[in-house]
């Protein structure tokens, strides 16, 4: 079986909504270059609805695919609906991600929330900070997936030269 599903490869090779919105109403950036991934989401919001969304991503195939899918999932939705979009929804829409790539979907969720928070802050809209805390990849992930991720990590650590054979 290939590492990635056809959906992931499609969104990686033909990413939707790539780019910048110069007069964005909210911008969110998460990740850092040392870890090897950064996602930036630009939102245009009108009447409480995502009128337009663009992304820029520095990262691996699943990071780019997760960003692309996440933008598709939130486009045209109301803010309340967007708040319901979790990393799980991104993973499901991509027909799954390998266990050690789940953090890419978490980054996508966090980037969207960071952009919304930016919009709220700029417009003085009150919100519950609890909704915007950063969380790690292990939350919201079913235990069996976590277990698989741990096993994969252990296998990666145990086999010599997983980077270069």
């Amino acid at each position: 079986m290939a590492l990635y599903s056809e959906k992931v490869m499609d969104h990686f090779l033909n990413p939707r909504n790539v780019g910048v919105i110069e007069d964005a109403d909210g911008v969110g950036e998460v990740g850092n270059p040392v870890c090897g991934d950064i996602m930036k989401i630009y939102l245009k919001i009108k009447d409480n609805r995502i009128e337009d969304v663009k992304f820029e991503t520095f990262g691996c195939g699943s990071a780019i695919a997760s960003s692309s899918m996440a933008t598709e999932l939130i486009k045209g939705k109301t803010i309340d609906e967007v708040m319901e979009v979790t990393n799980k929804a991104v993973v499901e829409a991509l027909d799954g991600l390998p266990a050690h790539k789940l953090h890419c979907s978490v980054l996508a969720e966090e980037a969207i929330r960071a952009a919304l928070k930016d919009y709220f802050d700029k417009n003085g809209i009150p919100y519950d900070p609890e909704e915007f805390r950063e969380h790690d990849a292990e939350e919201d992930v079913p235990p069996e997936v976590l277990e698989a991720a741990e096993a994969e990590k252990a296998a990666a650590a145990a086999s010599c030269g997983t980077k270069f054979k």
């Binding site: 490869m9 870890c35 090897g36 990262g59 195939g61 994969e152 990666a156 650590a157 997983t162 980077k163």
Partner: peptide, 29 residues
């Protein structure tokens, strides 16, 4: 400014097979 795994996948799409030392190709951080 770019990450190795995405380079590999795009090059594979062009028929070129090669390697990278990025974390994402290694399964480690």
């Amino acid at each position: 400014g770019i990450e190795g795994e995405s380079m590999l996948l795009m090059l594979d799409d062009k028929g070129i097979m090669c390697s990278s030392g990025s974390a994402c190709t290694s399964g480690s951080l």
